[in-house]
Design a protein around this nucleic acid. Structure first.
Lengths: 263, 263
DNA sequence: CGGTCCCTTGACAGCCGTCAACTACCGTGG
DNA sequence: CCACGGTAGTTGACGGCTGTCAAGGGACCG
């Protein structure tokens, strides 16, 4: 669908996907004006922070300071029990926000840590409020983002409660692949996966040994190829079927998506 | 802490807890003006709907119509897999809201059904928006409600991923007891629990047989007493310890709670 | 009094965890 | 060049937590 030229971000970009993954993601849901895009770019440029892999960004008990937006790399939210058991409760991929409006709470009830080297924007409360006030479409899109995050958390609850090991891993791979796709970070059948088997175990509630064995099964069934830090899903449809994966919960269909080429 | 008399809701009520469980709950977080309370009562009076136990209020695929507020009885959100496996992903207790701003989504990705006879208010979108516009404290309190719901969902993820059967059930009982307490629906050591063992199984990701056996263990350890539809927790501290329960995620401490009698 | 729902119990199996050892890989440094 | 240490991945043996199947009991109800 052609789009009229508009004052761009420096060059002749028109509908070139934004380099800002938040914009990219929100545009899977709604159409944004050039002004909206500029405001989002402004958010994404706040107080950039670069971190190594396996560093804590936020610790349990901290007072919420800023809204974190992940721009590159992977991070996760995790919780631990007193005896050391640890559960990754969600992944943060580029374009993901940690809890909009987290400022309402006095103390964090979980930790956020990086899994790979990562870059964050730390957006001050006032700036969020200002943007929300002047950009109703952004506000709506941020609501969408928030609701999708909740839906993902519910789906994880379903996975951990009902799916077996192979289904959990397969489901997780499908989810990651689609989420990365919505920010343009996938190839046709591949994406990065900077996770160790220990990370996968902590996210799926399995032991590392069992993750290892289950991955071997998935591999030998031709459902996934894992090499280095790359994930290949030769036949997404097959993996989705094997994992009882229904993409509806990601709410990737936007209002006009039935008009799109691949809608 | 004594409180000055204020124009009440018809009688000589002063700081008498509101009969509206939403108000009651939000006041565990923040202080509300009489005007705020009246607005919340107005929300809670919208399009009341009474339902029997085990009825679906919302089905997967439905278009979101109104914001549901549960006034009495219990309900739950649940998801099912194609082969019939079913997972309760959250409980709705009196005072709970189903997804503020759900209107943003086009279709529901889960079902909501009653567990006991229940009463709901169905609040139209426009009314929410109006109240939010004119009542900043309510807005803030609704944000708190929203964030706490997410925190609960994360804690369930932790439970399902890391806790064993006894810990899961014990943890769930602690959570329910505290949540019901925040709307004034508990006795000193007791509360209603209108759940079957099948419900408990679907919420904890266990089989009914194993729930049954685990409950027997909890009972014989003196940690819980279950009779009829009543739950008794003789020693909350002990059950919390046994279940690795940390109440921080419920964010029940409000700003001035250190000044309260039992803060 | 038969039916239904819920709870309970026993026997058995299997998914998955634990423990422990071993391999592969990689960057560092002598 | 190879030694070395650390991390990540792999494998085998074994056990236990939890699921499945099946049957029976109790309470409530038309």
């Amino acid at each position: 669908m052609p789009c009229p030229a508009a004052p761009g971000q420096g060059d002749d970009a028109i509908t070139v996907p934004s380099s800002n993954p938040l914009t990219r993601k929100l545009e899977t849901f709604t159409r944004l004006s050039q002004d909206d895009r500029l405001s989002l770019d402004r958010l994404a440029g706040q107080n950039l922070r670069r971190m190594d892999a396996r560093q804590d960004l936020i610790r349990e008990g901290d007072k919420p300071q800023a809204l974190n937006l992940i721009l590159s790399g992977w991070a996760c939210r995790y919780k631990t029990l007193e005896d050391g058991r640890r559960q990754i409760v969600s992944f943060f991929l580029p374009g993901d926000l940690c809890d909009l409006n987290i400022f309402v709470l006095r103390r964090m009830d979980h930790c956020v840590g990086t899994l790979s080297p990562a870059t964050f924007a730390q957006i001050p409360r006032a700036l969020i409020e200002e943007v929300v006030l002047h950009h109703p479409r952004i506000t709506q899109a941020l609501w969408w983002e928030n609701l999708v995050s909740s839906a993902i958390q519910r789906e994880w609850t379903l996975s951990l409660g009902q799916r077996d090991a192979a289904e959990r891993l397969g489901h997780l791979f499908c989810e990651i692949f689609l989420r990365l796709g919505s920010v343009g970070l996938t190839g046709r059948t591949t994406c990065e996966l900077p996770l160790t088997q220990t990370d996968l175990a902590e996210a799926t509630g399995l032991s590392t040994v069992h993750v290892n064995r289950t991955l071997q099964t998935l591999r030998s069934n031709g459902l996934v190829v894992l090499k280095g830090k790359m994930l290949e899903i030769p036949d997404l449809r097959a993996l989705m079927d094997a994992s009882l994966f229904n993409p509806d919960y990601l709410h990737l269909q936007h209002e006009g998506s039935h008009l799109d080429a691949n809608g």
